[in-house]
């Protein structure tokens, strides 16, 4: 499976490019899907340690607002993206130092609580953030060249695909490294890890900061693509969406988040109009269905089919 993964990834990337080419109206959707996939990759790292964050959209919001605030003075994609990642990572480090003392419900709920705090700050400090109206992102450039029209769409799509590919590689290497394997050890026998002389908190902190950086990159891409940021980016429903995609994509593979995100966004485009009022409800029901009946998610279903195909 692991050996086939790079080829699957390549095939998937080519398929995305082909679809974006053939159906330009989907390019925007696919860019957002890739961005969300990056954030979900971070959720996946934490799930590997048996921890689920109900508040990770806050780091996406941090990345997005960094873009919105900095765009007027230095609106270059190549500057804004690293800046958003660094800021999200730094905030992730500070919060992580506190939050990695906790596991399970405390871990989940403290993340949720902190994201609600960020949401309400973004909403209440109108003078700085324009409250729930949000901020329009100033015109952007890439490597000094101004971006406009259809070209901007392609640039953002390409950026999202490149960043996604980089983080896919990072996560893939990280998860088979001693630190990545130690994450799964936190889930099964944290005590033993400590008796091996390894700081479980340190192991979790690294994953937490990495996940914050990933969400920050995702938020920056979303802001640069949609050119509008609002506090809703930090709202619990956005965090819930990330968790939902993580479970939908399945916790097994590193491609899962992207598979899940693309599936999710495409369904949303066509179904959200029909189910606008009960979208969260539909997500909740689907989440229950996946957890109770298909714990491997979409990725698990595909992996199962592949195994069966190879066996016959």
């Amino acid at each position: 499976m692991r050996r086939a993964e790079p080829w699957l990834a390549l095939a998937g990337a080519l398929a995305l490019v082909a679809v974006a080419w053939a159906a330009p109206w989907l390019r925007f959707i696919l860019t957002l899907a890739l961005a969300k996939g990056i954030a979900v990759l971070g959720i996946l790292l934490l799930l590997r340690a048996g921890q689920v964050s109900f508040g990770h959209a806050m780091y996406a919001a941090v990345g997005a607002y960094v873009v919105a605030f900095a765009a007027p003075s230095m609106g270059d994609v190549l500057v804004l993206l690293p800046m958003a990642m660094l800021t999200a990572g730094a905030i992730g480090l500070v919060i992580g130092l506190f939050i990695t003392r906790y596991r399970e419900i405390f871990f989940s709920m403290l993340n949720l609580a902190l994201s609600m705090v960020l949401y309400s700050l973004l909403e209440k400090f109108y003078a700085i953030t324009k409250g729930s109206d949000g901020i329009r992102v100033a015109p952007l450039s890439i490597a000094g060249m101004p971006m406009d029209g259809p070209m901007a769409g392609w640039v953002m799509f390409g950026t999202a695909l490149t960043v996604a590919a980089c983080f896919w590689w990072v996560a893939r290497q990280y998860l088979i490294s001693p630190m990545g394997e130690a994450l799964a050890a936190i889930k099964t026998r944290e005590t033993r890890l400590e008796f091996l002389g390894v700081s479980a908190r340190g192991v979790l902190l690294v994953a937490y900061v990495l996940s914050a950086i990933m969400a920050g990159a995702a938020g920056a891409i979303i802001a640069m693509t949609s050119r509008h940021v609002t506090p809703l980016l930090a709202y619990w429903t956005s965090s819930g969406e990330l968790v939902f995609i993580a479970i939908l994509g399945g916790a097994g593979g590193v491609l899962g988040p992207f598979l899940g995100a693309v599936t999710y966004e495409l369904i949303r485009v066509y179904a959200a109009a029909a189910f606008a009022d009960i979208w969260q409800m539909a997500l909740g029901l689907a989440l229950l269905a996946v957890i109770l009946f298909a714990p491997g998610g979409v990725w698990g279903v595909i992996a199962g089919l592949l195994r069966r195909a190879r066996a016959t």
């Binding site: 290497q173 088979i176 490294s177 630190m179 394997e181």
Partner: peptide
């Protein structure tokens, strides 16, 4: 343990 990119 702190090598993020070398396989275990």
């Amino acid at each position: 343990v702190w090598h993020p990119f070398a396989p275990l």
